[in-house]
């Protein structure tokens, strides 16, 4: 960070002001993964998935990108449902801990998310009015996209090891579908019938420095 002292003449008096010129050059790349997805894959028989997360800093602004995969496999009383697909998100975060020397983060951000997935449903039931209903329905290579408001923390734990979490409010989902089947579960988003949806990631990162950050003068 570079400082410049500017003298301003006002009513014959000299007044000192300091213009701070921020350095927007990146200082490091952070790459991590979502522990919730890994733990859920091991404990929840209906879910399998993973997600990698990354960001890069431009002063207090961060470009963030995620890529992931999830698959679900449900058995209901009258049929089965399964899906699988990949998703990605890109967006930006703003760090509100600007004076933290370690560049720990409390951030708010915005994401655009997109997913391509396939799903299948097998129905086998006896309707009390209409009798036997037996059918197999598919949605193949369905596109979906949505937006997210994000907030969370990134905390330096060890030298290059960081941890953090991201809370996501997902909204404005738009999906394709076939005439017979409506998407049920969108990888990266969640239930397709929800107009907004909460998401949560608990993440572990490695931060690779690309250059040394300028030191920030401590406030006296």
């Amino acid at each position: 960070m570079s400082l410049a002292v500017v003298a301003q003449n006002q009513n014959g008096q000299k007044k000192d002001t300091v213009k701070v010129k921020h350095d927007y050059r990146p200082t490091g790349i952070r790459v991590g993964t979502d522990l919730v997805a890994i733990i859920q894959s091991g404990t929840d028989k209906t879910f399998e998935g993973w997600e990698v997360n990354g960001d890069i800093d431009f002063y207090r602004y961060y470009f963030a990108a995620d890529y992931g995969y999830w698959a679900r496999d449900y058995t209901a009383y009258d049929g089965m449902y399964s899906n699988n697909g990949t998703y990605w998100r890109v967006g930006a975060d703003v760090n509100f801990l600007t004076k933290d020397p370690d560049k720990n983060m409390f951030f708010f951000g915005l994401r655009y998310g997109s997913s391509v997935f396939s799903e299948q449903m097998v129905l086998q039931k006896v309707d009390p009015v209409w009798g036997d209903i037996s059918t197999t329905l598919n949605n193949d290579n369905v596109n979906a996209h949505w937006y997210e408001l994000t907030t969370g923390l990134r905390v330096k734990m060890l030298k290059i090891i960081w941890m953090g979490y991201t809370v996501r409010l997902k909204f404005a989902l738009n999906t394709d579908s076939t005439d017979d089947m409506m998407p049920s579960d969108v990888p990266g988003y969640g239930r397709a019938d929800a107009s907004s949806y909460w998401g949560f990631n608990y993440q572990i990162f490695i931060r690779l420095p690309v250059r040394k950050a300028n030191s920030i003068p401590l406030k006296k």
Binding site: T46, A76, M121
Partner: peptide, 17 residues
């Protein structure tokens, strides 16, 4: 009419829209 099926959950099963 048009109708689509959507899976809801293991407990609820499916729904017709």
């Amino acid at each position: 009419y048009k109708r689509q099926v959507q899976f809801v959950s293991e407990a609820c099963g499916e729904r017709y829209y």
